[in-house]
Amino acid sequence: MTLQDIADDAGVTPALVNRYFVSKRALFELVAQSHVEEVQPLTEVDTFASDLMAYWQDVDRRSPALALIRSIDLDGGKLLMHELERRMLGPWRQFLAGEPEAEAKIRLLESLTLGLGLFGIGALLGEDEGLSSEALAAMERRLALMIEACLGD
């Protein structure tokens, strides 16, 4: 997407976008940082699994996260890692503070969370329309079991 495309969508000129945001990258960072949803606490595993499935299935809710994934080429993943730490990994570290093997659990949860949406649901390549409601329900049940296994000792 070009700066002209962004300006056209907003109904302004590219010069006005540059005036307020300096660059397309600065605008991207602002949008990415302000619109990615916080990850819900891990207190209830079934609810967490259900919320995670719903998040990745909703095109509007997941699009800022996909933009962060696609931004890896821009800065070597610094913005993505910053947002993951702020919105997901940091809260999980607090939740799991003092737990045995907390960092291993967090890495597995991170892998499950991102892998589910990007590849399991197919959000990264826009392949998610082919999943039946039965398949999605089975994925949600199994995801809850996997999260339980990650949190267990």
Rank of each mutant, 00 (worst) to 15 (best):
E29V: 09
L30P: 05
L30W: 14
V31C: 08
Q33G: 15
Q33D: 08
Q33L: 08
S34H: 10
H35V: 11
H35R: 13
E37Y: 07
E38R: 13
E38Q: 07
V39K: 04
Q40I: 05
P41R: 02
P41K: 00
P41A: 10
E44W: 00
V45Q: 06
V45I: 12
V45Y: 09
F48E: 05
A49H: 12
D51Y: 03
D51L: 03
L52V: 05
L52Q: 06
A54F: 04
Y55A: 03
Q57N: 14
Q57W: 06
D58F: 02
D58R: 01
V59R: 14
V59N: 09
D60P: 01
D60M: 12
D60T: 06
D60K: 07
R61V: 02
R61A: 13
R62S: 06
S63I: 14
L66F: 00
A67K: 00
I69T: 13
R70E: 13
S71W: 03
S71Y: 07
I72A: 15
I72W: 15
I72Q: 15
L74W: 10
D75A: 14
G76A: 14
G77A: 10
L79C: 05
L80P: 04
L80T: 06
M81K: 08
H82A: 08
E83I: 15
L84N: 10
E85C: 02
E85G: 07
R86E: 09
R87G: 07
R87Q: 11
M88C: 07
L89A: 09
L89H: 05
G90C: 06
P91W: 00
W92N: 08
W92P: 04
F95D: 00
F95A: 00
L96Q: 01
L96K: 00
E99Y: 09
P100R: 14
A102M: 09
K105N: 06
I106W: 02
I106D: 02
R107N: 12
L108S: 15
L109V: 01
L109K: 00
E110Y: 05
E110K: 07
E110D: 08
E110T: 10
T113Q: 12
T113G: 08
T113M: 14
L114W: 08
G115V: 05
G115S: 10
L116C: 14
L116G: 02
G117E: 01
F119N: 09
I121C: 05
G122W: 03
A123V: 06
A123N: 03
A123G: 11
L124D: 03
L124R: 06
L125P: 01
G126A: 04
G126F: 05
E127H: 07
E127W: 04
D128N: 12
E129M: 13
L131K: 13
S132P: 11
S132V: 12
S132M: 09
S133Y: 09
E134W: 03
E134A: 12
A135Y: 08
L136F: 06
A138W: 05
M139P: 04
E140A: 08
E140N: 09
R141Y: 04
R141T: 12
R141F: 11
R142W: 06
R142E: 12
L143R: 00
L143K: 02
A144F: 11
A144W: 06
L145P: 07
M146N: 15
I147K: 02
